[in-house]
């Protein structure tokens, strides 16, 4: 059986030789194949490297996203908890209790003072300031001013108007307190 098989093989090799395959031919085919294989290996390696790099980056980014989502959820929960804490601290009952602790008491009587120059509507002190502006800044000259100077002058006028109004208010309040029966100021005590 063995003898018969080796004979068939040698005959096939002879047929191959007869078909034009020389030693050199076999050697040059091997070199090309080797280069081809090498190129394929390099290409596959390159593709593999690229894939692994991509996969690694995707994994890292995916984890990062996942962690950030978890963090966002955690912060959202924390935010909700803090909002409740603030709301509980701001509860009217708590505010009232704290005010009493600090010595505040409900007013027994409320007095209203008529404040000179106080505009009747709620737009004050804006209305007051606007009036002062009109009085202090002529519209023609005002338009000619540079923008920076304009803002600066406006601030200055607003501050002066408010300060003047506040002084009047304090003075009026002091007078009122002095006139109250039993007032320490009325009795000469500072």
């Amino acid at each position: 059986m063995i003898t018969g098989q080796s004979g068939a093989l040698s005959q096939r090799l002879k047929r191959d030789s007869a078909g034009g395959l020389t030693e050199k031919g076999i050697g040059s085919l091997d070199a090309k194949t080797a280069i081809g294989f090498l190129l394929i290996i390099i290409l596959v390696s390159l593709l593999g490297w690229l894939y692994l790099t991509q996969a690694s980056q995707v994994t890292t980014t995916g984890y990062r996203i996942y962690e950030l989502e978890r963090e966002r959820t955690r912060l959202q929960r924390e935010n909700a908890r803090l909002m409740l804490e603030i709301a509980e601290l701001e509860r009217l009952e708590n505010v009232e209790a704290r005010a009493r602790q600090l010595g505040f008491v409900p007013p027994e009587r409320v007095e209203y003072l008529v404040v000179a120059d106080y505009p009747p509507d709620r737009s004050s002190p804006g209305a007051l300031v606007a009036t002062s502006l009109e009085e202090n800044l002529g519209s023609t000259s005002f338009q000619r001013e540079e923008a920076g100077n304009e803002a600066s002058r406006r601030d200055s006028v607003v501050a002066t108007a408010l300060a003047s109004w506040w002084e009047k208010l304090v003075s009026q309040f002091t007078t009122w307190v002095t006139l109250q029966p039993g007032s320490a100021m009325a009795e000469g005590t500072p």
């Binding site: 959202q76 909700a80 909002m83 603030i86 709301a87």
Partner: peptide, 19 residues
């Protein structure tokens, strides 16, 4: 989703979601 909060006219919280 978190349900919207409800506040009074001065911004004080009246109802909110906690977890």
């Amino acid at each position: 989703p978190l349900r919207g909060a409800i506040r009074d006219r001065n911004g004080h919280l009246l109802a909110l979601d906690i977890f």
